[in-house]
Amino acid sequence: MNDAADLDPHGWGRMMAAAQAGEAAPYRRLLAELRPWLLRYFRRRLPPSSVEDAVQDTLLAIHAKRHTWDPSRPFGPWLAGIARYKWVDRLRAAGRHAADELPETLSTPDHEAAVTSAAALTGLLLNLKPAQAEVIRLVKLDGLSIEEAAARTGQSPALVKVNIHRGLGRLAQIIESHPDAD
């Protein structure tokens, strides 16, 4: 098994196989290592206010669906599939709560996060109508309130909410129907 390390660089597959057999220690270690990986994954892809929820949702999903990983196959694609599913889920949810503003405590936790924050999401905004992309950027990424965004863009507050809702829903749809465009 020379290439075992290549296929499973973090040893996550080995840990998950042990977890499927009911071993608590490797499972704890796996979850503890997945958490920062997921944090990074979602920071690039979601508004800051949705990141923590997405991480927790994904950990719960990994737990509930751990029997669907086939130990004879690599762990990475399975993990990526679940993370992506939860990403789409969260974008939809963020759209439903269009008016939720960023909590103070979550805006720019540290420099590294601020730089990479939602980089993938920002790129994806190019697929939306400019009016939608702009209010999503202002409210969900820059942390403006609905009223501030309305004043800045000239859209009415109601229209700002609608555009956030529709725009994030549309993004979720685009990501879902694209075969592995991250």
Binding site: A21, G22, A24, Y27, R28, L31, H63, R66, H67
Partner: peptide
């Protein structure tokens, strides 16, 4: 909580 809830599963 997740670790406490761990029990063996049969891979599908």
């Amino acid at each position: 909580a997740l670790v406490a809830d761990l029990h063996p599963v049969q891979p599908r």
